[in-house]
């Protein structure tokens, strides 16, 4: 295992995301509160927890897509609302399909990810097109650039969204449930894609309801439940905390919450409806 997270000591310039007592929600109502979280470059962090626990709210809060009710969010050393270059955070939203209201090719969709990097009246230049093509190759869709996206499978469409985020050359990639509702063949391809991203030293925050194939890539696991961060540590510490419940000692952690997390993670109560039958 790599060195464990030490939020208190992380003051150097390699801090990408830093939350202090942050609460996020809609209007005045906080869905997630008291969030303290520091993510440094090079980390591969899984954010796990049952459905409705506040995982997506946490991600949207970091991205500035919902309202910050309390606390501070610092991105790359700058207060979130002062960060001009939002595209340093690459976002892969939780979508089961791409909008199919008009026809568009994979390349056209991925090109939108490049827009933050080009001028207002500019068009994609040769280098931009190369970056778009390379992004499609990284997700294994290099041969499908000209394919109309609605004819791609669900897992392939998910990878198009990953390529779109990569085209902006982000410093941190935030992915919301990249594996949910994806069939077995595509889950393997997706795991390979994540492997390749790890090789390229992309910092990743991955929201998921099951660790599965991801577990070996992770440097850290954050558990969210009922609107709070319940656990934050290395996979090793996570496993130890989990085992502690089983061995019925060392109960100064949130054992009960972890236990319930684990049960919910394994079952995935809501996700089960569209993923279960397809899992390997």
């Amino acid at each position: 295992m790599t060195a464990g997270p030490a939020p208190a000591a992380a003051t150097s310039a390699d801090v990408a995301i830093d939350l202090r007592d942050a609460a996020f929600g809609y209007g005045e109502r906080a869905v997630l509160s008291d969030a303290n979280l520091t993510i440094r470059r090079g980390e591969i962090v899984a954010v796990v927890g049952p459905n409705g626990s506040g995982k997506s709210t946490l991600m949207k809060g970091i991205l500035g897509l919902n309202e910050r009710v309390a606390g501070t969010v610092t991105l790359f050393g700058v207060p979130s609302h002062e960060l001009r270059d939002r595209a340093r955070l690459g976002y892969v939203p939780q979508r089961h399909t791409l909008s199919a209201s008009v026809r568009a090719t994979a390349e056209e969709i991925v090109s939108t990810g490049r827009l933050p990097r080009i001028g207002w009246l500019g068009r994609l230049r040769g280098t931009d097109r190369q970056i778009v093509a390379r992004s499609l190759e990284v997700v294994g869709l290099g041969d499908r650039a000209a394919t109309e996206v609605s004819t791609l499978s669900g897992g392939q469409q998910r990878r198009v969204l990953i390529a779109r985020a990569l085209a902006g050359q982000p410093d941190v990639l935030i992915m919301d449930e990249p594996t949910a509702g994806v069939d077995a063949a595509n889950q393997h391809v997706l795991a390979d894609v994540l492997d390749r991203l790890v090789e390229r030293d992309v910092t990743m925050v991955i929201v998921t309801h099951e660790l599965g194939a991801l577990e070996r890539l992770l440097t850290r696991i954050v558990v969210v439940d009922a609107g709070r961060i319940r656990f934050d540590g290395t996979p090793h510490e996570y496993a130890a905390a989990r085992d502690a419940v089983h061995h019925d000692h060392d109960s100064h952690h949130h054992d009960l919450e972890l236990d319930s997390d684990r049960a919910l993670l394994a079952r995935g109560p809501l996700d089960a409806t569209h993923t279960d039958g397809k899992r390997p």
Binding site: R84, R86, L89, P93, R95, S99, S111, T112, L115, W120
Partner: peptide, 22 residues
């Protein structure tokens, strides 16, 4: 014509466009 790439991006995925600062 000038705004076409951005109009496309916003119409395609408004949430994503907002996240990347469009």
């Amino acid at each position: 014509w000038a705004l076409r790439p951005r109009l496309f991006a916003v119409a395609n995925d408004e949430e994503y466009a907002r996240a990347v600062g469009i």
